[in-house]
Simulated assay, not measured.
Amino acid sequence: MRRYGLAAVGAVAAGALVLGTGGTAWAGEADLEVHGSAVLDGGLMEVRLSPRDHGPDALAGASVRLRWSAALADAQQLPAGCARTGDREVVCGTGPLAVDEPGEQLVVPVRLRERPSEVTLSVDVAWSGGVVDHDRTNDTQRVLVLATGDPYVF
């Protein structure tokens, strides 16, 4: 059985908890979205992600989940803040997100187990520190990436 560092997933993201009126704990409201691009060349795929928070509250951090339709190679060199959570899945922390400012771009290179001619990539907000997101329509992106070496934007 493979182990993908599930304990590290909890460390990938951090959220801000604030006190509302009457001492009630809440994490605020935010509208999170992630856009980016993906390039597939042979068995290598590079994903560039740009997280954004449309507010009304800023976030100390969130997590995005990347899922591939093809299995990842066993050995990966993921960037800091990312953890492998399955055979085809990686979770990455966004870092702090100010309202209506682009977050720090994440660059996630992965090696696929095979050399497919195409891969479907799904990117979704996996954790947002308990904030309420009233617009969940922009939380998930999905793109078909052909092994052409060209960037496919989502």
Rank of each mutant, 00 (worst) to 15 (best):
R65G: 01
G42T: 06
D135W: 09
R48W: 04
T24S: 13
A126H: 08
G42K: 10
A8K: 11
S128Q: 12
Q77A: 14
G36P: 05
A11D: 13
G61V: 09
E89K: 00
V12G: 05
V145K: 07
P102V: 10
E89C: 03
A25K: 09
Y4G: 12
A7Q: 14
N138Y: 03
R136V: 14
A8D: 15
A71V: 06
R84T: 04
V131R: 09
E46C: 07
D53T: 08
V125G: 00
S63H: 01
R142I: 11
E114F: 03
A73P: 02
V131I: 07
A8P: 04
S63K: 01
A13T: 13
G95T: 13
V143T: 08
V131H: 00
T94H: 12
R113F: 00
C82D: 07
T94F: 14
V143D: 01
A30P: 09
R142Y: 00
D139P: 00
V39Q: 07
G103Y: 10
T21D: 14
P79R: 08
A80T: 15
A11P: 00
E101A: 15
A83Y: 06
V99N: 11
G86K: 02
D74E: 13
T148V: 05
Q141T: 04
A7R: 15
M45Q: 12
A58L: 06
D74Q: 11
E114D: 14
G86Y: 00
A60P: 00
G36A: 10
W127I: 04
P109N: 03
L66P: 02
R113P: 02
A75V: 15
A58D: 14
Q105H: 08
A147L: 06
G15Q: 03
A14Y: 06
P51M: 02
V110Y: 07
E104T: 15
L72R: 06
T85H: 04
L72F: 06
T140D: 04
T140W: 04
L49F: 11
G55M: 09
V132L: 11
W26A: 11
L49V: 08
V123P: 02
V108C: 01
E118Y: 09
A11K: 14
T120C: 00
S128V: 01
V145M: 04
E89G: 01
A30L: 07
L78Y: 11
P109W: 04
V9K: 10
A83E: 05
T24W: 13
R84L: 05
L19N: 02
L72V: 04
V9H: 05
E33M: 14
R136S: 11
L97G: 09
A98V: 05
D41P: 02
D74H: 06
A98S: 15
H35K: 13
L97H: 14
G61C: 12
R48A: 13
A70F: 03
V64Q: 02
S37I: 00
L6R: 10
V12D: 14
V64K: 08
S128H: 10
T140A: 13
H134G: 04
T140L: 13
G43N: 15
H134C: 02
R52K: 10
T94V: 14
V9F: 02
